[in-house]
Design a binder for these strands. Structure first.
Length: 497
RNA sequence: GGUCGGAUGGCCGAGUGGCUAGGCUCAGCUCUGCAAAAGCUGCUACAGCGGUUCGAAUCCGCUUUCGACCUCCA
């Protein structure tokens, strides 16, 4: 079997994954800012890295998955006065800031449970790690790479860039940055516009504030991830993930801070997922084009033709490689819904099928094909987590499964070992690695009883060739959202929408 | 303006220098009382123009065009 390789944004090439401690893998993913409801764009990273995390576990790694909650607001540094989004929103919603962030943290958790994302092993909050952040800032000050102005602390990027490769991750050249940003307004406390805040002095009306050696204030955005990732994963850890839009300045700043504080770069492998777009444009709060997850699940958004099940969204995201943009459209989502339904049905059929036990395949060609399709799934995941190709292979095998059930493929076409491999591959990749689940909630026994009564009545009608009655039952049930299906063997199955 | 990344069949989307991913839609056929489902078959694309090559959608150059980042952003 091949070995895991994936694209490292830092080196801009695919690299073989070698963990720092054999058998263990540390993964840090930038979590959400909980000043508002999560939208569709947020689904991309957390589903992507959920699969990464699942796959590492599948490979046998003990994974420590850390994903933070940013519950201390960031602030706009340039132009007007600092605006803290949490602070601002709390005032708007007339909530205590911690009340606000709790509310949106809860909503976030709820949504991602619906997506069947595993909970991270540790989910640290920014406000719970103020001391760690202050300590780290102090270290950076001691090393001479930060300066204090009016109770705020700024990181000296220019000085850093003289000694370290600043801009490598995001492909930026400091000189360009300095040149294109010459027009500072006189108010700016920073020595250079490229500098960023480690700690910000809080204006009097600011609700979220903590005591620090530099007066009351609040931490800068970038420092929380550095402080928390190093606390739980160490000064150097394996993988850091997040959206591409965080590459600069967030991740670039993380590297700079940690490099000074700890003496070396913090991360071995950087991974960045691409954006979800809508009409070709990135979906984002500032573009005013977001579709909230709650709206997606309920269908309550002008752009939505219908509600979409969380599993449809998950499948839709995994059908595309994580480094490609993914454009939203109802057509695409509906295609995913049908596709997932078909694939899942084949999977359920497969789990119920039994093999007749022949050790030798009756159809050698088909047998060999199936073995190849199964084995390739591992190779595809090992090649930069290519879930799109895994799904394509599963679809290749669906007709084999359906064919066995429908009689077009002989029950002994595959050798018993291959049949078992097929079963295992579907189960492992679909459920364990891609993290998909059935869309249909398990029905209550009572409804089952009612339906089987109707099905029996209809069977009698069919026996008597009373198709008017049998069709009436089927049609009326369909109107009520229950689809009946006459199987080849005379049984009747149904699905509930 | 700077940096970077895309442009693939009706739609969504993989992708490797040569062997037509996959999904959805559509059409035909098989099965079926009918339907649905399923199976089979068909629809063979890579923005344009040059170049490298025996051969390029895949490599290079130019053009057109879309986007991301350079402020908060997943």
């Amino acid at each position: 079997m091949s070995e895991l390789h994936f694209y490292n944004s830092y080196t801009r090439q695919k690299e073989k994954f070698v963990s720092i401690t054999p058998g263990y893998a540390g993964l840090y993913v930038c979590g959400p800012t909980v000043s508002g409801e999560s939208h569709m764009g947020h689904a991309r990273p957390y589903i992507t890295f959920d699969v990464v995390q699942r796959y590492l576990k599948y490979l046998g790694y003990k994974v420590r998955y850390v994903r933070n909650i940013t519950d201390a607001g960031h602030f706009e540094e340039e132009g007007r006065e600092a605006v803290d989004k949490v602070d601002e929103k709390a005032k708007l919603e007339k909530l205590e800031p911690m009340e606000l962030v709790q509310k949106y943290t809860n909503l976030f958790h709820h949504a991602f449970h619906l997506f069947n994302c595993d909970d991270p092993a540790i989910e640290p909050t920014a406000t719970g790690h103020i001391i760690e952040q202050i300590t780290m800032i102090e270290t950076i000050l001691e090393k001479g790479y930060a300066y204090v102005v009016n109770g705020s602390v700024y990181f000296d990027v220019k000085k850093y860039a003289e000694n370290y490769p600043y801009g490598k991750l995001s492909g930026r050249i400091l000189e360009d940055q300095l040149e294109t940003t010459r027009d500072l307004d006189g108010q700016d406390e920073k020595r250079n516009k490229v500098d960023f805040a480690l700690w910000k002095s809080a204006p009097p009306q600011h609700l979220m504030r903590w005591k620090s050696p530099w007066g009351e204030g609040f931490p800068g955005w970038h420092i929380e991830c550095s402080a928390m990732s190093s606390k739980y994963l160490g000064d150097v850890f394996d993988i850091h993930g997040g959206g591409m839009d965080l590459q600069f300045p967030h991740h670039e700043s993380e590297i700079a801070q940690s490099t000074i504080a700890h003496g070396h770069s913090p991360v071995r492998y950087w991974m960045h997922n691409n954006m979800i777009t809508i009409n070709g444009k990135k979906m984002g709060r500032s573009y005013n084009n977001i579709i909230k997850l709650s709206e997606l699940f309920s269908g309550s958004h002008p752009l939505l033709d219908q509600p979409y099940h969380p599993m449809v969204i998950r499948f839709y995201i995994l059908q595309t490689h994580y480094r490609s943009t993914l454009d939203f459209s109802n057509e695409a989502l509906q295609a995913s819904e049908r596709a997932l339904r078909r694939l899942w049905e084949a999977y359920e059929i497969l789990q119920k099928l039994t093999h007749k036990g022949n050790a030798e395949a009756e159809d050698k060609d088909l047998d060999a094909k199936v073995i190849t399709f199964c084995r390739e799934c591992d190779d595809f995941m090992n090649d930069d987590f290519n879930s799109a190709k895994v799904i394509a292979n599963l679809f290749e095998m669906a007709p084999v499964v359906n064919g066995i059930k429908g009689g077009q493929v002989s029950p002994g076409a595959l050798a018993s070992g291959t049949f078992l491999l097929l079963k295992t591959t579907f189960q492992v990749f679909l459920e364990d690695i891609l993290g998909l689940q059935p869309m249909q909630a398990t029905q209550s026994g009572k409804l089952d009883n009612v339906l089987s009564l109707l099905i029996d009545i209809r069977k009698d009608a069919k026996k008597r060739k009373d198709f008017a009655t049998s069709d009436q039952i089927r049609n009326k049930l369909a109107e009520a959202g229950v689809m009946l299906k006459d199987e080849k063997d005379g049984t009747v199955s149904y699905t509930i929408e």
